[in-house]
Design a protein around this nucleic acid. Structure first.
Lengths: 344, 344
DNA sequence: CTGTTAGCGCGTTCAA
DNA sequence: TTGAACGCGCTAACAG
């Protein structure tokens, strides 16, 4: 049987209250008493039962991290950031993959409330605002990452998708490209809309009219990038560059272009978004917008833990927004006149 | 305030014991009583406090997953497998990144015991056997993934590294290569040793003497692959192929070869190990040995949960070993005679 | 500085 | 089929 605080108390000839005080530093304990207790603890190999402790203190030192799918290359770095900061602050993290399924998200949220987690980090959830609000009303602090939510007291951390997309598109424009296609994410997602908006802003500023025929929507997968290019090629509107809403789609797009006999970047330039690890190693290496995912994970967790400690006394916080950074690699190149004739 | 079982009992005009029985199906309750309880539960939005429940039942329905570093591309799929099965069985997973640091591993193990997790999945830990044994003696079931441990009652899941390495090397040999270099992992790790052993077995079977000058050790990183090739080139022992102990190293090796003006695979063939997602997209796409990581995660978790349910009545289980699968891509090619002259 | 006494929210005897 | 009473292991008053 594992020793309890009672065993320690008996061995050290004190009350359990004193043991508790010695262990938690709650109030002063005579140094000789403390020593007797320490000895007893060591002799018995005693470790406080945190479940019992949580029952009375109401804190579990556990935070939940909800995200769609850990295998999305965008997430591991984020998780590491969360993990690292949680660790520094003495928290432990419960990982929940919700698979982009609203009902699963809701189930998990309910369970977390039952599990008495101290806080939750919500990444890219798709469930309705009221689901989140209901959860938050349980009194559990939340931080939303990469997703706007209505709940007023929840800090939000996100990247400036619009600006990143604009920078990417402007870069392509500066290289001389005029026919710039875009493979967007799911049209329902704010992220997709923002990136599309950034793309349009850049075109606008350059005095180039927006051509819906140059935009296809996908779902952030390689397949979507591939079929997106196919659709674009069918549509027959000429283009010499494509800005994909994420790296995976850009990679699929590159594959499709190659399969159709177009060289990247000689015939068509490709730019992605995210700078997943893979991006540096594709053929050709992918020009993209880097998201500081590790840092975002850290920052979001920091906000969450701060919120936990300030127990409700949180004023509405300004969203923390990170800027993406253009990483130029070999998948993009300056437009040359010969290229125009062969524009696809 | 969140409603407790007492609130439900009062509202349904029964005792808390009856509410408990109705909720858990522990023993029969009259259908009309049950209905009153159900109504009360819904009206109050009651959810049992699992912390309190755990204190008495001693089970938390939580398992811990300890691994070195989630950003290692080898892990996300594994985590997903774990996650998926845990979910199916009603378990939740606590993620712990131990960073390949033995003392951190030990700290975590202690904490997990205090947190009363029901079981732990240990992946690639580096701490001593006695540390694990001490933890296991707390009565917490463990499953070791990709790491042998002495503790007799712990199931082990692993891939046949030796066989995979042998298959990879044999493949290179079949392509006609004779000078096959190897970039190993840290020499202290069993994984590294096994893969090295597989490499040697293949050479042996082909009647090729083992040349220590063709083997350099790294640490499974791209950098290690890069510097490994540099060292190999300095050493001046000619080779036309290299088998890297993992994909990351293979990618680094490829980069180094290219930087030195050698073409892959025309001048040197490269084969990796793991088949991380990235492998299909490098330039050239990497030939490698695929590990069924998702399936391994599932299986390991299944074993763990079975162990939890059979509470100690577990006999020593045979290790579950998965075979790797050779995935041929463009980084490897048949040796041509012209190549021999230019062997590096 | 220390001990006594109450709970925290549940599951689980033991009677009825 | 139900309720009263107790205990899980711990922290938090309140005295002394």
């Amino acid at each position: 049987m594992k020793p309890t605080i009672y065993d320690v108390a008996r061995r050290a000839r004190v009350s359990t209250a004193t043991v508790s005080r010695a262990l938690n530093g709650t109030s002063a304990v005579a140094s000789q008493t403390r020593e007797r207790i320490d000895r007893a603890v060591r002799a018995l190999g005693y470790r406080p039962n945190v479940v019992a402790r949580s029952l009375v203190t109401k804190v579990t030192h556990t935070i939940a991290l909800l995200l769609p799918d850990i295998t999305n290359p965008f997430f591991p770095d984020l998780v590491k950031g969360v993990q690292t900061l949680a660790d520094e602050r003495g928290y432990t993290v419960l990982l929940c993959s919700v698979a982009g399924d609203a009902s699963r998200e809701e189930e998990y949220l309910e369970m977390l409330s039952a599990k008495q987690v101290d806080g939750a980090l919500l990444v890219g959830l798709v469930c309705g605002h009221q689901t989140i609000a209901r959860f938050a009303r349980h009194g559990i602090p939340i931080v939303s990452l990469d997703r706007n939510i209505d709940y007023p007291r929840a800090p939000i951390v996100q990247v400036n998708h619009r600006k990143g997309a604009r920078v990417a598109t402007e870069y392509l424009l500066e290289l001389g490209h005029r026919g710039v296609a875009h493979i967007s994410g799911p049209i329902g997602l704010r992220v997709s809309q923002e990136r599309l908006a950034g793309y349009r802003e850049a075109l606008n500023k350059a005095g180039i009219g927006y051509d819906p025929g140059l935009v296809v929507s996908g779902n952030f997968t390689e397949e979507a990038g591939y079929t997106g290019i196919e659709a674009l090629l069918e549509a027959a509107t000429a283009f010499t560059a494509v800005f994909a809403a994420n790296d995976l789609a850009a990679i699929g797009a590159t594959a499709a272009l190659k399969d159709r006999g177009h060289r990247v970047p000689e015939d068509v330039s490709v730019v992605g978004f995210d700078d997943i690890r893979l991006a540096a190693y594709t053929s050709p290496p992918l020009t993209t917008i880097r998201q500081p995912t590790y840092e975002m994970g850290r920052r979001a967790t920091e906000l969450l833990i701060d919120a936990i400690h300030s127990r409700g006394s949180i004023r509405r916080i300004q969203p923390v927004v990170f800027d993406g950074e253009l990483i130029v690699r070999a998948s993009s190149a300056r437009l040359v006149t010969a290229q125009l004739a062969g524009a696809v």
